[in-house]
């Protein structure tokens, strides 16, 4: 076995220096892995990965039943949980994951005052925000996109003619991807905006979950209890991305009584407000 001598003297660095995009990508990767608990304690991994696994549950059950008992049911078992209904089924999981992930992305940096260091590197406050939003999307897409894609993949595999099914349902694939991004972006922005207001993870998590539940209750009470106009349903923040995602699919029901334009407007308004909060909170130390 040969001996290797390491020369650890300090040398100047004359190698490659990448541009801003690579720096933002590095921050995104590190932040996403941190949010998912990689390189951290088992507890930090358990919660986000557990929530993601839970959100796969309905798809696994449906596909499992189909694999085992398809012959015994007259209706296709996949109709039990159609794509557009999947988001509603896992909505609590999405909300919980947003509540866990978003505070973990912003609060520790503010608490430990690491921002001073970050902004002294080649990353500006806005690039920092872009990286953190992209990092929030990674775990969120793990619940808003990956399980539905898994269900779609299972349906393709179990179809009598998989290629024919794929050809016939390519539109569904595009809708699944769009819906996944619609929900993940909404929760990502809202979660980060709430987290930007405090350096304490617990406060951010409580604030975000509290806001979502309170808004939902307010919308429900106004419409169901006080007989207010159905447009009051738009106050229910968790419903906004879910209903909008459902309406991306042709079979998405219009049960709520508010037009798609109304939901789209509410979605855009929430995203704009969240973005404004983020830009204000990360406007740079000197502005």
């Amino acid at each position: 076995m040969g001996t290797r001598v390491e020369d650890l003297r300090y040398t100047s660095y004359d190698g490659e220096r990448r541009g801003s995009v690579a720096c933002v990508a590095a921050l995104t990767r590190q932040s996403a892995l941190h949010a998912l608990g990689f390189g951290r304690s088992w507890r930090a991994k358990f919660i986000p990965l557990g929530l993601i696994a839970l959100c796969f549950g309905p798809a696994i059950v449906v596909l499992g039943l189909r694999a085992l008992f398809a012959q015994q049911f007259p209706e296709p078992l996949t109709d039990l949980v159609p794509y557009e209904a999947y988001y509603n089924v896992i909505s609590i999981g999405i909300l919980a994951l947003a509540g866990v992930v978003a505070p973990d992305l912003l609060c520790p940096d503010r608490r430990d005052r690491v921002l001073d260091l970050y902004f002294a590197t080649a990353v500006s406050p806005r690039q920092y925000l872009v990286a953190k939003l992209a990092a929030a999307l990674v775990p969120l897409l793990g619940v808003t996109l990956a399980p539905v894609l898994f269900l779609f993949g299972g349906n393709v595999l179990f179809a009598l003619h998989p290629f024919g099914y794929l050809q016939d349902h390519l539109g569904d694939l595009a809708r699944i991807v769009t819906a996944g991004f619609v929900i993940a972006s909404f929760y990502g922005l809202l979660g980060l905006a709430a987290s930007s207001l405090t350096a304490r993870r617990a406060f951010a998590m409580g604030g975000l979950v509290g806001l979502l539940i309170a808004s939902s209750a307010t919308g429900g009470v106004l419409v169901e209890g006080l007989g207010a106009d159905s447009s009051a349903q738009l106050l229910a923040l968790p419903a906004i991305p879910i209903v909008l995602a459902e309406r991306i699919f042709p079979d998405g029901d219009d049960l709520v009584g508010v037009g798609t334009a109304g939901w789209l407007l509410a979605y855009a308004a929430v995203c704009v407000v969240a973005l404004a909060v983020l830009l204000f909170r990360y406007r740079g130390s000197d502005e």
Partner: peptide
């Protein structure tokens, strides 16, 4: 921090040790 200053990952790991 080295990656945020534009160093590729492999170079960043070596430089950090150094």
């Amino acid at each position: 921090l080295a990656e945020l200053r534009g160093l590729p990952r492999r170079a960043a790991v070596l430089r950090a040790s150094e």
